[in-house]
Design a protein around this nucleic acid. Sequence first.
DNA 1: TCAAGTCAACTGACCATTTGGTCGGTAACC
DNA 2: GGTTACCGACCAAATGGTCAGTTGACTTGA
Lengths: 186, 186
Amino acid sequence: MVRDADRTRQRILAAAIEEFAALGIAGARVNHIAEVAGCNKAMLYAYFGNKDQLFDAVFAAHVNAYVEQVTFDATDLAAYAGRLFDYFEDNPDQLRLSIWYRLERPQGSRLEAVVAVNQTRLEQLKQAQQEGILPSHYEPAELLALVQSTSTTWSSMNPEYGIDAPGDRTQRRRTVTDAVRRLLAS
Amino acid sequence: MVRDADRTRQRILAAAIEEFAALGIAGARVNHIAEVAGCNKAMLYAYFGNKDQLFDAVFAAHVNAYVEQVTFDATDLAAYAGRLFDYFEDNPDQLRLSIWYRLERPQGSRLEAVVAVNQTRLEQLKQAQQEGILPSHYEPAELLALVQSTSTTWSSMNPEYGIDAPGDRTQRRRTVTDAVRRLLAS
DNA sequence: TCAAGTCAACTGACCATTTGGTCGGTAACC
DNA sequence: GGTTACCGACCAAATGGTCAGTTGACTTGA
């Protein structure tokens, strides 16, 4: 057996992402994560502290990947919505993680890094509005929220509502970008 | 102690709604539900079978309330969106239940009753389109999905994104109905 | 070159507690 | 007196977490 702390850490993290995305914090089993990672449970505690902190690490990784991969562009929100759509379509686990986080984390526990990123985006939106690139019938925060929620329209549909998302991903994507364009139309 | 099977059942259900909405299926504790309901745990099993079936009962109750209270109107989707907004604003627990359901229930487990209701709505949308009351640039399913997701825009924002929902509920509501109107504009 | 020593990666067995679930019995109501 | 709502106590299994000890890689020193 090769000994490699980094690799082990990485394997644990990967297994944890899978487990948490599928089952949430309360549903995830530490034993199972260790098993999938192919290492001893104690390593998990050595590297990450405890179950909650492991989730924090997983979620932080998700946020980083998200901010890094989905570039924001206040001057072309439809394109941004498209990228957002693609990202969550390609990484459904990431979307689930976000939702688990929202449900299972006590309100008020914000990641300052993300708040900062968001502040910047709101500023950019405000400026684009002042320059007339974006319409002003919504506040920056409203714009961001609407775009965000439109982009994840399909993935956030409850199956209970029995809506069959169009099988065609291209079509779904077009609907998203089109909807954002309509929201911005004057 | 007064003996009343119905009342006890009701108390268990109420406690279960609270618990499941707050913690989800995996996170909910049967002991705690019984405690809050002020009755013995065994009653819970006598009336509902087991934890999963109790959640089913809770969720079915939610779906019933939802279908009953939020009247659908294919000819005025903006108003429908407003009602939807109000409903989830007034009953945040119900929204959380829906999300838990989506996350924790194995895909493919649909409530036939809801699928039926939804089928009807899709039909109504289609007809409204044929009559020219609704525009045809979206499929009925797309319309329903967009309206749904727009209505819950604020409640589905991850705090991670640091967006402060406008404190003013009236303003949030106006944004929702306005957005739906824009989606329908030709 | 190689034995001794060090330190960090790793393990298996273990623990206290919690959890979903059950059962024999009790007491209120018809 | 029978039915049924209800309860306390209990159980096996699972769960998050710990710990004493082992193993392997690298450093040291002769």
